[in-house]
């Protein structure tokens, strides 16, 4: 395995550098090394990989659900006139700044025994975390998508209509024209979800199993715990992973955007 070899070379010179976070980051991101590591890390790899897994699962699920909900709403608001439209837009824009702890509190109440979803027993589960991140990401994705959709030139929509397009055809043309803005919206939503701490801490409880692997602990809540316990190296590595994930996602989108423009 090429990556494994490359990693091992880094790891061999590692003892002198073992305190440097980037070496630890490499070991974590490689994830495919089957040989025992020559570097002793200040944490269990399983602990970190489980945290990454939970973070990605919760954030991606929340953003996927939010996108499915937000895009039609953005199209509906962008394409139609109805009484109270300005109020709806104002609510969406206000929602972008919702304090996450308040969202967490509301979702916790909703899924608690006294709440309307109490029977589902979702307190301190990943599903409850997805719900809270959905609430946080939805105004962001809806708002930015709405801005992207409404910025598409009316003339382009007119052209689609003039060539015999139905309202659906015109909407599809608009989505295609606004695709980079919509991708940006989804990214912004993902950024909000994956870097969020307040609500997931409240509704998820930051729980780990007896073996140290995560049940509802995410990168952000783990960073908080590690920092509070004085394990700054681990906290920094987790922080670096979080930043690397966001950079990776942005890089993929930039690449796709570049490919798309060349069509």
């Amino acid at each position: 395995m090429c990556d494994g070899v490359a990693f091992s070379e880094v790891a061999m010179i590692g003892p002198a550098l073992s305190s440097q976070p980037f070496v630890e980051l490499l070991s974590l991101l490689s994830g495919i090394v089957s040989e025992p590591l020559l570097v002793e890390f200040p944490f269990e790899r399983n602990y970190v990989t489980s945290i990454i897994r939970v973070s990605l699962y919760v954030s991606l699920a929340a953003v996927a659900a939010s996108t499915l909900f937000s895009l039609p709403v953005a199209m509906l608001v962008g394409f139609t006139d109805f009484p109270g439209k300005r109020v709806v837009v104002a609510v969406i824009n206000t929602g972008m700044g919702f304090p996450s702890v308040v969202v967490g509190l509301v979702v916790l109440f909703a899924v608690s025994n006294q709440g309307p979803l109490g029977s589902l027993e979702l307190v301190f589960t990943k599903e409850a975390m997805i719900m809270s991140q959905f609430v946080l990401a939805t105004p962001v994705i809806t708002g930015v998508s709405l801005a992207a959709v409404t910025s598409v030139e009316e003339g382009v929509q007119d052209a689609a209509y003039a060539m015999g397009g139905t309202r659906l055809d015109v909407a599809l043309v608009t989505i295609k024209e606004a695709r980079y803005g919509i991708v940006t919206a989804v990214l912004a939503g993902l950024g909000r979800a994956i870097s969020e701490i307040g609500s997931v801490l409240i509704v998820g409880g930051n729980i780990v199993r007896a073996d140290g692997t995560s049940i509802t602990r995410t990168l952000t809540t783990a960073i908080r715990v590690e920092a509070r316990q004085g394990r700054y190296e681990t906290a920094f590595v987790l922080g670096a992973i979080l930043v690397a994930l966001v950079l990776l996602i942005n890089g993929i989108v930039l690449h796709l955007g570049g490919t798309g423009r060349g069509r």
Binding site: E153, G155, V156, D158, A159, A162, V173, K176, E177, R261
Partner: peptide, 8 residues
């Protein structure tokens, strides 16, 4: 139209 209004 007066503008080309082409799709991207």
């Amino acid at each position: 139209f007066q503008e080309a209004n082409l799709f991207d």
